[in-house]
Nucleic acid binder design. Structure first.
Lengths: 191, 191
DNA sequence: GCATCATATGTACGAGTGTACACATCGTGC
DNA sequence: GCACGATGTGTACACTCGTACATATGATGC
């Protein structure tokens, strides 16, 4: 035993040798960084710090930073779309579907804003990155199809846009809309 | 005449000594860069290049890059808000106001997407910068008030959100909505 | 003409970045 | 046990960035 006082990294990190889920955790860490600090501040080093992993681990698991961002945003979009899908599938009728939509919007607003910030960051990134544009496109198509379980195609598209606007405007405002106000707007549109 | 072949900067730049509008042109150049390359790629050097001005000019006219961004976004928001205001003020009645709104949305979509990209970039930036959040807030308040010339407060707020959603969703989609579809959605909401 | 000073410019520096890559470590098949 | 290849790590390098600052330039008042 010659390592009485190893001056290397802290023990907590040392013990992580060979963990199979590391790549996944790195993607999650990337999402955390994007949500908290923005895409611009999302660097190899920052992600590694959040995931408590050495810098070299980033270049081992990903060939470039762009790949990390793409995978992270893909995971985010799929996760949001899945919830949207599930809740609308579970709705037995049109009335229940409307309530589900309102609940989803309210969740987004009252929640940690984590998801909302991620979405807007994705929009901006998608404006200049074809890969991310495809991710956004797939996401939008999926939520529209989810709405089409209960509404005709035109209504689905318009309602989707209304939801987007309500969430975004509300989130950027100093006095966000209440669930009641959301309900009012949605019902007014669908009346 | 000893300057037969001056190896210095190109003549075009040399001749710009002392132009009073330079600060303004720098802000415009910043907006161009933000729209074309994104906030992340908006650096002192890139702005200076676009404005055809030496790097040192940036630090002379602005104390920091953040100041440049703040002034640029302020100019953008005010410019958009002014147009919105003017067109709605010119509308003699509710019907004309609705048409004005539809025309504004269609312009945004059919236009160069320049303004739209700037707006989304502003949203993201505002999420983390209090100064920019104030700019966004002032802009939203102003457009709501413009709408309140023709609609009650609740309707104005909801319509504002609907517009936002229509423009954003449409811009991100591979098949943007046509002016007819925009008209349909707006009329449906206000019917 | 000339002194003065706001305006304008070129260059340098330290900090932080993405990525490459040589080296260390360990599970696995024999 | 042990060789070997997959996995993990530390460090170095070339580059870009924001900003500071010494210097140059020219408009203006006298």
């Amino acid at each position: 035993m010659s390592d009485a006082t190893p001056p290397r990294p802290p023990a907590a990190r040392r013990s992580r040798r060979h963990d199979p889920g590391r790549r996944d955790r790195l993607i999650d860490a990337a999402l955390t960084v994007i949500a908290e600090r923005g895409v611009a501040a999302t660097t190899h080093r920052e992600i590694a710090r959040v995931a408590d992993v050495p810098l070299g681990s980033m270049t081992y698991h990903f060939t470039s930073l762009e790949e990390v961002l793409a995978e992270a945003f893909t995971r985010h979009a799929e996760s949001v779309a899945r919830v949207f899908d599930e809740r609308l599938s579970a709705a037995p009728d049109r009335e229940a579907a409307i309530e589900a939509v309102i609940a989803l919007v309210a969740d987004d607003l009252l929640g940690s804003r984590h998801d909302l910030v991620l979405s807007v960051e994705l929009y901006v990134a998608a404006a200049r990155n074809p890969t991310l544009r495809a991710v956004t496109q797939a996401w939008m198509t999926r939520s529209r199809h989810a709405l089409e379980r209960h509404f005709d195609a035109t209504t689905a598209r318009e309602l989707d846009a209304l939801i987007e606007g309500l969430v975004l405007h509300s989130a950027l405002s100093t006095d966000p809309m209440t669930p009641e106000q959301i309900r009012h707007a949605v019902h007014r549109f669908l009346r």
